[in-house]
């Protein structure tokens, strides 16, 4: 008696079936029983294999979803980042356009005093634009290569870099900016520290009422396994218990600029940088008294 094996049978099974069929010690009936048993078994194999395939499909689609989510969040970030930046830049270009129109008018009128005033304003606006564009460059680096630029952080360099980018905000304000650095041979990215501090200091000055002298204390502390950045201000503060708190909603903001409301992209960018570097942020604030932002970045991330 000859049995034809179905073509799809598992190769191993096929070999077993062939072996049992060629076993002369068995009767045809026994061969048939054995054959049916083996076919039965093969169903389990097929089932197992199908499950395996299904699981690997699930895994790859879950991976795809994860990658998709990452891309989506990166895209959202770039969207609101672009919106915030475009808004800031548009504001300054509008001022430049307006100032030029005004300058033409006063040149025609021969008003030297106004002409000089306008030129001073033009100077200020251009400088503000330059620092925005510089920030833009640094931040775009933050999304890319920035993480690899680690070296010993020098306090004078850090101070100078921060001052260069914040001085225009302080120009017309009564203020006190105190630095407290304990760097102890801190090996980290100066850019990351600078971007975080510049953004926190800028926010602090922006949210200090105009009739108040702005007092800002900046700390950079190098602990054993982490670097701690702390910025204390006496700005307007905020009610952290308020669920509508705008500063925090900005942290979770994904939809395009709708809630930006002049906060710029500062805190959002800080949050992104902290996340990338496995850090933490802690905010303490009292309405009308001030806020303290504390950021902790682990140093062991460097070895990754």
């Amino acid at each position: 008696m000859q049995f034809e094996l179905p073509g799809n049978t598992h190769r191993l099974l096929k070999r077993q079936v062939k072996k049992s069929l060629e076993d002369d010690a068995l009767t045809d009936a026994e061969k048939l029983t054995k054959f049916i048993e083996l076919i039965n078994e093969s169903y389990f194999f097929v089932d197992d294999e199908r499950n395996l395939h299904r699981r690997s499909d699930e895994i790859s689609s879950r991976e795809l979803m994860e990658v998709n989510e990452q891309l989506q969040s990166k895209n959202d970030f770039l969207d609101s980042f672009n919106h915030g930046m475009a808004h800031d830049i548009k504001n300054h270009t509008s001022n430049l356009q307006g100032l030029i129109t005004m300058l033409r008018k006063y040149i025609e009128l021969g008003n030297v005093e106004m002409r000089n005033k306008i030129v001073d304003r033009l100077d200020l606006s251009v400088n503000q634009m330059v620092s925005i564009v510089q920030g833009f460059l640094y931040l775009s680096r933050a999304e890319g290569k920035i993480d690899s630029q680690y070296r010993i952080v020098n306090d004078e360099e850090l101070k100078t870099a921060i001052q260069l980018e914040t001085q225009y905000l302080f120009a017309s304000r009564e203020h006190e900016l105190n630095y407290h650095f304990e760097l102890n041979e801190l090996f980290y990215s100066r850019h990351i520290i600078k971007i975080i501090l510049v953004n926190l200091i800028s926010n602090a000055i922006k949210f200090t009422p105009l009739d108040r002298k702005a007092i800002i204390n900046v700390h950079v502390l190098h602990h054993e396994n982490e670097v701690v950045l702390k910025v204390e201000d006496n700005a307007m503060g905020m009610d952290l218990t308020d669920p509508n708190n705008k500063i925090f909603s900005l942290f979770n903001r994904t939809e395009e600029g709708e809630k930006t409301k002049g906060y710029g992209v500062g805190l959002f960018v800080i949050k992104k940088i902290i996340d990338r570097n496995a850090g933490k942020i802690d905010v303490k604030s009292t309405p009308n008294i001030g806020s303290t932002f504390t950021i902790t970045l682990p140093l062991n991330q460097l070895n990754k």
Partner: peptide, 13 residues
Amino acid sequence: DDNPTTLFLHQDV
């Protein structure tokens, strides 16, 4: 307006 330069311009216009 929170921007002093914008206020300066608007006053003039």
